[in-house]
């Protein structure tokens, strides 16, 4: 399990492009593992198509003439 997380984390870090030193990897992995229940809580919700995210775009919000 730990090895699977480590491999996943290596891919994610590579994508992020952050120059993390190898000696700091274990600490980040610990944080990433602690974050998983938080992400699971978001992902398990059965959201319908009508459930819009909170930051709804308003087309007039950035027009200085309006």
């Amino acid at each position: 399990m730990k090895e699977a997380v480590k491999s996943e984390l290596a891919v994610l870090l590579s994508r992020a492009g952050v120059p993390l030193r190898s000696e700091d990897m274990a600490d980040i992995q610990h944080g990433w593992e602690l974050l998983q229940p938080v992400l699971t809580r978001l992902r398990q919700e059965d959201c319908d198509f009508e459930s819009e995210p909170a930051p709804i775009f308003r087309p007039d919000a950035f027009d200085p003439e309006i």
Partner: peptide
Amino acid sequence: RDRILLGGLMGSGDYVQAQRLRQR
């Protein structure tokens, strides 16, 4: 740096789901 690095590892879907949860 270590705390916000977690934000760089999440997926775009996580952010959108968080905003949908926020509305609820």
